[in-house]
């Protein structure tokens, strides 16, 4: 396994494909030797990120969601962006519930408008 790797996945604006984003996240996290609990939390985080982007895309004429997974030694970053990028739209504030969920399950998150990212590191062993 190389030191780092990048994987891109593009999904349609349809909540049925959130599962694909979750499975991809879980599979990559398993490659990084995350624990079962860490993977479970990452799945919740990925679910939140991608569901938010899909909702945003639905409201703002987005056509697809581009997801980029970046693996490094003990960390997985997931960045997502609604395509085509809408430059004129004001980003909606993230709701408190989402912030509470993401704050509990991932180490870093940032979501604004049609873009967002989450990051989670595995526990060093």
């Amino acid at each position: 396994m190389p030191e780092s790797a990048d994987i891109s996945v593009t999904i349609p604006v349809d909540s049925r494909f959130v599962a694909l984003a979750r499975v991809t996240a879980a599979s990559l996290a398993a490659e990084l030797d995350f624990t079962i609990d860490e993977i479970e939390e990452l799945r919740v985080g990925a679910n939140e990120l991608v569901s938010l982007l899909i909702e945003w895309a639905e409201d703002n004429a987005g056509e697809e969601i581009e997801l980029r997974y970046h693996l490094s030694a003990d960390r997985l970053d997931i960045a997502g962006e609604v395509q085509p990028r809408a430059s004129e739209v004001e980003p909606e504030p993230t709701d408190p519930l989402t912030r509470q969920i993401l704050g509990a399950v991932v180490d870093e998150y940032e979501i604004a408008g049609g873009q967002g990212r989450i990051a989670k590191s595995r526990m060093r062993r």
């Binding site: 624990t35 609990d37 860490e38 939390e41 704050g103 509990a104 399950v105 991932v106 180490d107 870093e108 989670k120 590191s121 526990m123």
Partner: peptide, 18 residues
């Protein structure tokens, strides 16, 4: 745990696990 998570920069669940 939540205060520690904020201070250390990892999730609360990660703090719990650490």
């Amino acid at each position: 745990q939540s205060e520690i998570a904020e201070r250390v920069g990892v999730s609360q669940m990660h703090v719990s696990r650490l």
